[in-house]
Computed example of a mutant assay.
Amino acid sequence: MSLELRNVDWQAGFKKIITDVTIAVKPGEFLGLIGPNGSGKTTLMSVLGGLRRPSRGDAILDGQALKNIGRRNLAQRIGFVEQQADTIDRITVTEAVSLGRTPYLGLLSPWSQNDDAVVDDALDAVDMRSMKDRMWHTLSGGEKQRVHIARALAQEPEFLLLDEPTNHLDIRHQLGILELVRRLPVTVVAALHDLNHAAMFCDRIAMMDGGKLRAIGTPQDILIPENLRDVFGVSATVEPDDIHPGRCMIRYHAGGANTDVVSDFADIKADIKKDRIA
Rank of each mutant, 00 (worst) to 15 (best):
W136A: 02
S2Q: 13
Q84K: 15
S39L: 05
M131Q: 13
V97T: 04
M249C: 11
I205F: 00
I88Y: 11
P225R: 01
D264G: 09
G32I: 00
G210D: 06
G49N: 02
R146C: 05
D124C: 11
P185Q: 07
D86T: 14
S263L: 13
K67W: 12
N258L: 10
S263W: 11
V181E: 01
D264W: 12
A85R: 06
T187N: 05
T187P: 05
A154W: 00
D242C: 11
V97S: 01
T92S: 12
G40N: 00
G70C: 07
S46P: 04
V118P: 01
G70D: 11
I268L: 14
R72A: 12
R214A: 13
A154I: 01
S55V: 02
I222M: 02
L160R: 03
T237E: 14
K41N: 01
T166Q: 02
D163T: 00
V186D: 04
G38N: 07
N167E: 10
L178T: 00
M135C: 11
W136G: 01
P245F: 08
E239K: 11
I171W: 08
D133E: 15
A236L: 04
N258D: 15
V261L: 14
D241G: 07
A85H: 08
C202M: 06
E29I: 07
N227P: 06
I272M: 13
A254W: 10
M128H: 06
H137N: 15
G49F: 01
P245C: 09
M207H: 03
T166E: 02
E29K: 10
S235A: 13
D120F: 09
I149F: 05
S112E: 11
S109D: 12
A278G: 15
I17L: 12
V261I: 15
H197A: 09
T43H: 02
T102M: 12
D221C: 06
V234D: 01
A215G: 05
T237I: 14
Q220R: 14
S98Q: 08
P54T: 03
G233M: 06
